[in-house]
Computed example of a mutant assay.
Amino acid sequence: MAFRIHKILNNNAVVVLDDGKEKIVMGAGIAFQKRKNDIIPPSKIEKIFVMEGENEKFQQLLRTLPEEHIEIAEEIISYAEGQLQAPLNNHIHIALTDHLSFALERLEQGYRIQNKLLNEIKVLYRKEYQIGLWAKQLIKERLGIEIPDDEVAHIALHIHTAKMDAASMNKTLRQTTLIREMVDIVQAELGVDMDEESISYQRLLTHLRFAINRIEDHEWFHSMDDEMLALIQAKYEKEYACAKKIAEHAKSEYGLEFPDAELAYIALHLQRLQKR
Protein backbone atom coordinates (compact mmCIF):
# COMPACT_ATOMS: atom_id res chain seq x y z
CA MET A 1 0.00 0.00 0.00
CA ALA A 2 1.40 3.45 -0.98
CA PHE A 3 1.33 6.25 1.62
CA ARG A 4 1.78 9.96 0.95
CA ILE A 5 3.69 12.09 3.44
CA HIS A 6 1.40 14.36 5.43
CA LYS A 7 4.05 15.65 7.88
CA ILE A 8 7.80 15.08 8.26
CA LEU A 9 8.88 14.52 11.89
CA ASN A 10 12.54 13.66 11.32
CA ASN A 11 14.71 11.81 8.78
CA ASN A 12 13.29 8.46 9.87
CA ALA A 13 9.67 9.26 10.79
CA VAL A 14 6.70 10.80 8.99
CA VAL A 15 2.96 11.19 9.53
CA VAL A 16 0.60 9.84 6.88
CA LEU A 17 -3.19 10.02 6.58
CA ASP A 18 -4.96 6.71 6.17
CA ASP A 19 -8.78 6.94 5.93
CA GLY A 20 -8.52 10.34 7.57
CA LYS A 21 -6.57 8.88 10.52
CA GLU A 22 -3.05 10.01 11.34
CA LYS A 23 -0.47 7.22 11.43
CA ILE A 24 3.22 7.43 12.20
CA VAL A 25 5.42 5.58 9.73
CA MET A 26 9.07 4.86 10.57
CA GLY A 27 12.03 3.53 8.61
CA ALA A 28 15.71 4.38 8.09
CA GLY A 29 15.99 7.51 5.91
CA ILE A 30 12.27 7.40 5.07
CA ALA A 31 12.01 11.20 4.80
CA PHE A 32 15.47 11.88 3.33
CA GLN A 33 15.10 14.49 0.51
CA LYS A 34 11.32 14.12 0.69
CA ARG A 35 8.54 16.70 1.00
CA LYS A 36 4.87 16.77 1.91
CA ASN A 37 2.70 14.69 -0.47
CA ASP A 38 5.67 12.64 -1.73
CA ILE A 39 4.99 8.90 -1.87
CA ILE A 40 6.89 6.64 0.57
CA PRO A 41 8.51 3.60 -1.05
CA PRO A 42 6.96 0.52 0.70
CA SER A 43 10.46 -1.01 0.97
CA LYS A 44 11.46 1.82 3.35
CA ILE A 45 8.63 1.17 5.84
CA GLU A 46 9.73 -0.65 9.01
CA LYS A 47 6.98 0.26 11.51
CA ILE A 48 3.52 1.84 11.41
CA PHE A 49 1.89 3.20 14.56
CA VAL A 50 -1.49 4.43 15.63
CA MET A 51 -0.85 5.98 19.05
CA GLU A 52 -4.34 6.16 20.53
CA GLY A 53 -4.64 9.34 22.60
CA GLU A 54 -0.87 9.92 22.55
CA ASN A 55 -0.27 10.77 18.90
CA GLU A 56 0.70 14.39 19.55
CA LYS A 57 3.10 13.49 22.35
CA PHE A 58 4.87 10.86 20.22
CA GLN A 59 5.11 13.25 17.26
CA GLN A 60 6.62 15.91 19.52
CA LEU A 61 9.24 13.44 20.82
CA LEU A 62 10.13 12.40 17.27
CA ARG A 63 10.53 16.05 16.28
CA THR A 64 12.59 17.16 19.28
CA LEU A 65 14.74 14.28 20.58
CA PRO A 66 18.12 13.41 18.99
CA GLU A 67 17.52 10.96 16.13
CA GLU A 68 20.21 8.56 17.35
CA HIS A 69 18.40 8.27 20.72
CA ILE A 70 15.12 7.47 18.95
CA GLU A 71 16.83 4.89 16.70
CA ILE A 72 18.45 3.15 19.68
CA ALA A 73 15.17 3.08 21.65
CA GLU A 74 13.38 1.53 18.63
CA GLU A 75 16.14 -1.08 18.21
CA ILE A 76 15.85 -2.01 21.90
CA ILE A 77 12.05 -2.33 21.59
CA SER A 78 12.33 -4.52 18.47
CA TYR A 79 14.97 -6.69 20.15
CA ALA A 80 12.82 -6.99 23.30
CA GLU A 81 9.76 -8.07 21.29
CA GLY A 82 11.91 -10.70 19.57
CA GLN A 83 13.33 -12.00 22.85
CA LEU A 84 9.98 -12.03 24.66
CA GLN A 85 8.22 -13.33 21.54
CA ALA A 86 5.32 -10.97 22.13
CA PRO A 87 4.37 -7.42 21.11
CA LEU A 88 4.80 -4.70 23.70
CA ASN A 89 2.24 -2.03 24.52
CA ASN A 90 2.57 0.91 22.08
CA HIS A 91 3.14 3.29 25.01
CA ILE A 92 6.70 1.87 25.31
CA HIS A 93 7.64 3.91 22.21
CA ILE A 94 6.97 7.08 24.22
CA ALA A 95 7.99 5.92 27.70
CA LEU A 96 11.30 4.24 26.85
CA THR A 97 12.38 6.78 24.19
CA ASP A 98 11.71 9.72 26.51
CA HIS A 99 13.36 8.04 29.50
CA LEU A 100 16.42 6.84 27.56
CA SER A 101 17.12 10.18 25.90
CA PHE A 102 16.93 12.00 29.24
CA ALA A 103 19.21 9.38 30.88
CA LEU A 104 21.79 9.63 28.08
CA GLU A 105 21.84 13.42 28.32
CA ARG A 106 22.37 13.23 32.10
CA LEU A 107 25.20 10.72 31.71
CA GLU A 108 26.90 12.94 29.10
CA GLN A 109 26.67 15.83 31.55
CA GLY A 110 28.40 13.73 34.22
CA TYR A 111 25.39 12.98 36.43
CA ARG A 112 25.16 9.66 38.27
CA ILE A 113 22.15 7.44 37.71
CA GLN A 114 21.04 5.37 40.69
CA ASN A 115 18.44 2.65 41.09
CA LYS A 116 17.78 1.43 44.62
CA LEU A 117 15.87 -1.56 43.24
CA LEU A 118 18.74 -2.84 41.05
CA ASN A 119 19.20 -6.18 42.88
CA GLU A 120 15.47 -6.91 43.02
CA ILE A 121 14.92 -6.06 39.33
CA LYS A 122 17.86 -8.31 38.36
CA VAL A 123 16.20 -11.26 40.08
CA LEU A 124 12.48 -10.59 39.48
CA TYR A 125 12.71 -9.52 35.84
CA ARG A 126 15.67 -11.55 34.68
CA LYS A 127 14.76 -11.76 30.98
CA GLU A 128 14.10 -8.02 30.80
CA TYR A 129 17.38 -7.33 32.61
CA GLN A 130 19.25 -9.41 29.98
CA ILE A 131 17.61 -7.24 27.30
CA GLY A 132 18.85 -4.20 29.23
CA LEU A 133 22.40 -5.60 29.16
CA TRP A 134 22.08 -6.03 25.37
CA ALA A 135 20.96 -2.37 25.21
CA LYS A 136 24.00 -1.36 27.29
CA GLN A 137 26.29 -2.94 24.67
CA LEU A 138 24.38 -1.32 21.78
CA ILE A 139 24.61 2.14 23.38
CA LYS A 140 28.35 1.73 23.98
CA GLU A 141 28.98 0.65 20.38
CA ARG A 142 26.74 3.30 18.83
CA LEU A 143 27.30 6.33 21.07
CA GLY A 144 30.41 5.50 23.08
CA ILE A 145 28.43 6.00 26.31
CA GLU A 146 28.79 3.42 29.08
CA ILE A 147 25.47 3.20 30.91
CA PRO A 148 25.64 1.86 34.50
CA ASP A 149 23.79 -1.29 35.62
CA ASP A 150 21.38 0.99 37.51
CA GLU A 151 20.21 2.32 34.12
CA VAL A 152 20.08 -1.24 32.72
CA ALA A 153 17.54 -1.96 35.50
CA HIS A 154 15.48 1.13 34.54
CA ILE A 155 15.32 -0.12 30.93
CA ALA A 156 14.33 -3.60 32.18
CA LEU A 157 11.47 -2.13 34.22
CA HIS A 158 10.16 -0.15 31.22
CA ILE A 159 10.20 -3.33 29.12
CA HIS A 160 8.51 -5.38 31.85
CA THR A 161 5.65 -2.92 32.35
CA ALA A 162 5.09 -2.72 28.57
CA LYS A 163 4.26 -6.44 28.41
CA MET A 164 0.58 -6.84 27.56
CA ASP A 165 -0.32 -8.68 30.79
CA ALA A 166 1.97 -6.70 33.12
CA ALA A 167 0.96 -4.38 35.92
CA SER A 168 1.38 -0.62 35.52
CA MET A 169 4.75 1.03 36.23
CA ASN A 170 3.38 2.43 39.53
CA LYS A 171 2.17 -0.97 40.71
CA THR A 172 5.42 -2.69 39.66
CA LEU A 173 7.54 -0.07 41.45
CA ARG A 174 5.34 -0.32 44.55
CA GLN A 175 5.68 -4.12 44.67
CA THR A 176 9.45 -4.06 44.00
CA THR A 177 9.96 -1.35 46.66
CA LEU A 178 8.00 -3.42 49.21
CA ILE A 179 10.18 -6.45 48.43
CA ARG A 180 13.31 -4.30 48.89
CA GLU A 181 11.97 -3.18 52.30
CA MET A 182 11.17 -6.79 53.27
CA VAL A 183 14.74 -7.84 52.41
CA ASP A 184 16.05 -4.96 54.58
CA ILE A 185 13.92 -6.21 57.50
CA VAL A 186 15.26 -9.78 57.06
CA GLN A 187 18.86 -8.50 57.06
CA ALA A 188 18.26 -6.42 60.20
CA GLU A 189 16.32 -9.12 62.09
CA LEU A 190 18.36 -12.21 61.20
CA GLY A 191 21.72 -10.55 60.59
CA VAL A 192 22.22 -12.44 57.31
CA ASP A 193 24.32 -11.15 54.46
CA MET A 194 22.32 -11.49 51.26
CA ASP A 195 24.13 -13.10 48.37
CA GLU A 196 22.14 -11.76 45.41
CA GLU A 197 23.44 -14.58 43.22
CA SER A 198 22.34 -17.39 45.54
CA ILE A 199 19.38 -19.61 44.65
CA SER A 200 17.91 -19.19 48.18
CA TYR A 201 17.82 -15.39 47.80
CA GLN A 202 16.29 -15.61 44.33
CA ARG A 203 13.65 -18.09 45.51
CA LEU A 204 12.75 -15.83 48.45
CA LEU A 205 12.27 -12.80 46.17
CA THR A 206 10.22 -14.76 43.65
CA HIS A 207 8.06 -16.20 46.45
CA LEU A 208 7.47 -12.73 47.95
CA ARG A 209 6.47 -11.32 44.56
CA PHE A 210 3.91 -14.08 43.94
CA ALA A 211 2.58 -13.73 47.49
CA ILE A 212 2.09 -9.96 47.08
CA ASN A 213 0.39 -10.53 43.71
CA ARG A 214 -2.01 -13.05 45.22
CA ILE A 215 -2.92 -10.73 48.11
CA GLU A 216 -3.47 -7.77 45.77
CA ASP A 217 -5.57 -9.87 43.39
CA HIS A 218 -7.51 -11.51 46.28
CA GLU A 219 -6.49 -14.97 45.07
CA TRP A 220 -6.55 -18.21 47.00
CA PHE A 221 -3.46 -19.09 49.09
CA HIS A 222 -1.98 -22.52 49.77
CA SER A 223 -3.49 -23.75 53.01
CA MET A 224 -1.52 -25.48 55.76
CA ASP A 225 -2.89 -27.75 58.47
CA ASP A 226 -2.69 -26.47 62.06
CA GLU A 227 -0.20 -29.15 63.11
CA MET A 228 2.30 -28.22 60.39
CA LEU A 229 1.85 -24.52 61.13
CA ALA A 230 2.50 -25.08 64.86
CA LEU A 231 5.58 -27.18 64.03
CA ILE A 232 7.12 -24.44 61.84
CA GLN A 233 6.28 -21.75 64.43
CA ALA A 234 8.06 -23.79 67.13
CA LYS A 235 11.00 -25.19 65.13
CA TYR A 236 11.81 -21.96 63.28
CA GLU A 237 10.71 -19.49 65.91
CA LYS A 238 13.20 -16.77 64.94
CA GLU A 239 12.39 -17.04 61.22
CA TYR A 240 8.63 -17.05 61.85
CA ALA A 241 8.98 -13.93 64.05
CA CYS A 242 10.90 -12.27 61.20
CA ALA A 243 8.19 -13.26 58.68
CA LYS A 244 5.65 -11.72 61.08
CA LYS A 245 7.63 -8.49 61.15
CA ILE A 246 7.62 -8.43 57.35
CA ALA A 247 3.85 -8.94 57.35
CA GLU A 248 3.31 -6.15 59.93
CA HIS A 249 5.30 -3.78 57.70
CA ALA A 250 3.28 -4.79 54.60
CA LYS A 251 0.04 -4.20 56.50
CA SER A 252 0.92 -0.86 58.09
CA GLU A 253 2.62 0.66 55.02
CA TYR A 254 0.76 -0.96 52.13
CA GLY A 255 -2.49 -2.31 53.61
CA LEU A 256 -1.65 -5.91 52.61
CA GLU A 257 -2.59 -8.74 54.96
CA PHE A 258 -0.57 -11.98 54.86
CA PRO A 259 -2.31 -15.16 56.12
CA ASP A 260 -0.53 -17.26 58.79
CA ALA A 261 0.13 -20.13 56.38
CA GLU A 262 1.95 -17.71 54.06
CA LEU A 263 4.14 -16.55 56.98
CA ALA A 264 5.09 -20.18 57.58
CA TYR A 265 6.18 -20.60 53.95
CA ILE A 266 8.22 -17.39 54.16
CA ALA A 267 9.81 -18.68 57.41
CA LEU A 268 10.93 -21.83 55.55
CA HIS A 269 12.54 -19.68 52.86
CA LEU A 270 14.30 -17.62 55.54
CA GLN A 271 15.57 -20.79 57.19
CA ARG A 272 17.06 -21.92 53.85
CA LEU A 273 18.73 -18.54 53.46
CA GLN A 274 20.49 -18.90 56.80
CA LYS A 275 21.41 -22.54 56.23
CA ARG A 276 23.34 -21.42 53.18
Rank of each mutant, 00 (worst) to 15 (best):
N170P: 00
K36R: 15
N12Q: 12
K244E: 08
I113H: 10
F210C: 00
I94V: 14
L118P: 05
I77Y: 09
K21V: 14
K244R: 09
A86L: 07
M194Q: 05
Y79P: 00
E151W: 10
G144R: 13
E75N: 11
L273N: 01
A31F: 13
I215H: 06
K122V: 02
L62R: 04
S43M: 08
H6P: 01
S198P: 03
K34L: 06
I199G: 00
I72P: 00
A162F: 07
L173K: 09
K44A: 14
D226Q: 13
D150W: 15
V15S: 03
K21E: 10
H222L: 10
L17E: 11
L84W: 11
L124E: 05
S43P: 01
L143R: 11
I113Q: 11
D193E: 13
E141R: 10
P148V: 09
L104V: 08
Q274T: 06
Q274W: 03
R272A: 13
A166N: 05
E181M: 03
K7P: 01
T177M: 02
D18A: 11
G255L: 03
A156I: 10
T97L: 02
E54T: 09
E56M: 03
G144W: 15
G132A: 05
L268W: 08
I131Y: 13
L84K: 13
E196P: 03
L104F: 14
L263R: 04
G82L: 02
E197F: 05
F32C: 01
P148D: 09
I45Y: 13
E105H: 15
F258T: 00
A230V: 06
R63H: 07
L178P: 00
E71V: 11
Y265F: 15
I215A: 14
H218A: 12
F49Y: 15
A241R: 15
L9P: 02
V16E: 12
V15Q: 09
E141K: 11
T172D: 01
E108V: 02
L173R: 12
E189L: 04
T176P: 02
L190E: 06
W220H: 13
E262K: 04
A153G: 10
A28N: 14
M224K: 12
G255I: 04
I72L: 12
I215C: 06
D226Y: 11
L190G: 01
D18N: 14
L61N: 08
E237V: 04
P87G: 03
L124Q: 10
A80S: 11
M169G: 00
Y236P: 00
Q83D: 02
K251A: 03
E216S: 07
G82P: 00
R63I: 01
K140N: 08
M26T: 15
L270G: 01
G20P: 06
S223L: 09
E81V: 02
A230C: 02
A135M: 06
S223R: 12
E108D: 07
E141M: 09
N11A: 13
H69L: 00
R112L: 12
I39S: 11
E56L: 08
R174K: 06
P41I: 04
Q33K: 14
A264W: 06
F32T: 07
K245L: 06
L96D: 04
N213I: 05
R142C: 04
N90G: 01
S223P: 03
L96G: 02
R209Q: 08
E141W: 06
E146A: 12
E108F: 02
